[in-house]
């Protein structure tokens, strides 16, 4: 049987955040739903325009009702995008911790954070692309933000492909930690470079700035909702992976004795 000295090396069976993980997901779901309703019912269209089927004049440009509605995607797009990068930042942080300690727990943390990041990046791409379609009238353009998120998505996919291609657990953890650190550094550089190089080919999109109070409120609600969702999903998935590791460890130990 496992004695007391050995069991400390076992992956833990659960920690206090697991208790609130489910509620975090639930609260996140409720908040994003509220945010969804607020986006259409509470927050006014840009610059107080009204949606009545007639084109409006904003900042010297004719803007159709369809555009005013499509602008609502923004309330989800921005929080999702921020959470996806936040998850990547956590993955990078845990990867650094892993390289410092070689503790498998951090590798699991980084991997799960990457999974969450991938989910949110895919959502970002979908919402962003819908918006692009209506706003700019094209399905795809090599706009700095779109490009950066495409690159981010490709690197995260590469991260998981890499994990699948290595058999030795320690080597897999080290290599994937290195790749996620590179990804974390590479992605902001990508945004910076694609944005700062002046280009004559891409249309420069100027938008009327500033958010009114009701818009800010809606974004805030969605933001908190998405963060809670991201956190809750992370914890639930982490617990699942960790428990699977624990079962494996217990099996090994039983077999040994």
């Amino acid at each position: 049987m496992a004695n007391a000295k050995k069991s400390h090396a076992l992956p833990e069976g659960g920690q206090w955040p697991d208790a609130i993980a489910f509620w975090a997901v639930l609260a996140g779901a409720v908040l994003t739903t509220i945010g969804f309703l607020m986006a259409f019912l509470y927050a006014g269209p840009v610059n107080g325009a009204s949606v009545d089927g007639m084109p409006e004049m904003i900042g010297g440009q004719m803007v159709s009702s369809k555009l005013l509605l499509s602008q609502k995607i923004f309330y989800f797009h921005m929080p999702v995008a921020i959470v996806s990068f936040g998850a990547l930042a956590f993955a990078g942080y845990y990867s650094v911790r892993f390289l410092m300690t070689k503790n498998q727990r951090y590798d699991t943390c980084a991997k799960v954070a990457m999974e969450i990041s991938l989910i949110f990046v895919v959502c970002t791409m979908i919402t962003g692309d819908l918006w692009t379609r209506f706003e700019w009238g094209v399905w795809w353009t090599w706009d700095p933000r779109l490009t950066t998120y495409l690159i981010l998505m490709l690197i995260i996919i590469a991260y998981f492909v890499l994990r699948g291609f290595i058999d030795e657990p320690e080597r897999r953890s080290i290599y994937s930690a290195v790749v996620s650190i590179i990804a974390l550094v590479d992605v902001p550089i990508c945004l910076m470079i694609t944005r700062m190089i002046p280009s004559s080919i891409h249309p420069v999109v100027l938008r009327e700035g500033g958010m009114t109070g009701d818009m800010g409120m809606t974004v805030g609600v969605c933001m908190i909702g998405m963060i809670l969702l991201g956190f809750g999903m992370y914890r639930l998935r982490f617990r699942q992976v960790r428990l699977a590791q624990r079962v494996q460890a217990l099996k090994d130990e039983l077999e040994e004795n």
Partner: peptide, 10 residues
Amino acid sequence: VLFVPIIFPL
């Protein structure tokens, strides 16, 4: 798979 996205900015 790793090289192309990572050097994209460059």
